[in-house]
């Protein structure tokens, strides 16, 4: 129990840091004032309500969603390198958003955000089918390479679109690495609801996924229907990843780093792991975002780049431990 309290405390600290640290350092007094007696003339109050709080909410939603998505993908594929970013699910959602905004213009952000879900679903289905992810017995190399190929394909298409439309580089930057800085323009509340739905679905299917990891015959003996469980997990991955991308853009490596940590802290029970991963994901993303605001102030390093720089070494450590081709990986 103490572990849970410690993690909750860390999350609270990260949220506090996200609110107070930045180009304009703000004291806690200013917060209390802004909440109790909001003054639209006071720039500190405006910063808080219009920028910092939406940003905090976006970080909470996207981080928690990606943590859950990471745990789901890693347990369904039994592959410690599975991550919505590395496997191209983020890219699929971001690609659909980008195509939508180029074709339809920026008419309605909330309606546009819905496009993230078919994008994520198609990418997830493609990478699992092509990478053999659902068979569970394939080595980690194939799934990771399939993800890399999908990412490269979508990157090429996006480059072409961006160059054809002669739009600013900002679209491209959005595509390459997500950020929380546009939070106020994104439908955070709606996506929080969708991500929550994905989380509930994940919790419902958790026993089935655990049974699946015992192996085909044994799990069928326990009465699990593999097709149904996998489809459920895929829907949950799509909902959480799509929501995260609609809020913050593609953020890679978060879903890679968080699950092993969650397992270490919460133990090998999938439901506990999922809840823990949601908390840790939010904590890590908020910290990465805050760090990105500090390291090169006054300019900002995008949160997606910070998570990639943090998560790259984690990938290498895991890849080094796996001995693919040298027996069971």
């Amino acid at each position: 129990m103490t572990r849970w309290i410690v993690v909750a405390g860390l999350l609270a600290l990260a949220a506090l840091a996200s609110l107070t640290v930045g180009v304009r350092d703000m004291s806690l007094d200013a917060y209390l004032q802004a909440l109790t007696a909001y003054d639209p003339q006071n720039p500190a109050h405006v910063t808080l309500m219009a920028i910092r709080i939406p940003r905090l909410c976006a970080g909470l939603v996207a981080g928690a969603a990606l943590g859950v998505a990471g745990v789901l993908m890693q347990s369904v594929t039994r592959n410690p390198l599975a991550d919505p970013g590395l496997l191209g699910v983020n890219a699929g959602a971001a690609f659909a958003l980008l195509v939508g905004s180029t074709l339809l213009g920026r008419a309605d952000e909330a309606a546009l955000a819905l496009l993230a879900f078919p994008g994520a679903a198609m990418a997830a289905a493609a990478v699992f089918a092509l990478g053999g992810g659902l068979r569970g017995d394939v080595g980690p190399v194939r799934l990771t390479l399939a993800g890399a190929a999908l990412n490269a394909l979508l990157l090429s298409l996006v480059t072409a679109i961006v160059l054809i439309r002669q739009d600013s580089l900002d679209i491209f930057r959005f595509w390459v690495a997500g950020s929380l800085s546009q939070a106020v323009a994104r439908p955070v509340a709606e996506m929080a609801a969708v991500a929550g739905l994905g989380g509930v679905l994940a919790l419902l299917f958790a026993p089935g996924i655990e049974a699946l990891s015992l192996g085909g015959a044994l799990s069928r003996g326990l009465g699990t229907r593999p097709g149904r469980v996998q489809a459920g997990a895929l829907v949950a991955v799509t909902l959480t990843t799509g929501a995260a991308v609609a809020v913050a853009g593609p953020i890679a490596f978060l879903g890679l780093m968080v699950p092993p940590l969650a397992r270490m802290i919460a133990g090998h029970r999938l439901r506990a792991e999922l809840v823990m991963a949601a908390m840790l994901g939010a904590t890590v993303l908020l910290l990465a975002d805050t760090l990105g605001r500090v390291v090169m102030a006054p300019s900002e390093v995008r949160a997606g780049i910070m998570t990639a720089l943090l998560g790259g070494p984690v990938f290498l450590v895991i890849a080094r431990r796996l001995r693919p081709g040298a027996g069971a990986a």
Partner: peptide, 18 residues
């Protein structure tokens, strides 16, 4: 094993792109 080289290489590639 070559597959480890490929996997680690993918990771280095991700980091370099980041």
């Amino acid at each position: 094993p070559p597959l480890t080289l490929i996997l680690v290489g993918l990771g280095i590639g991700f980091l370099c792109s980041a």
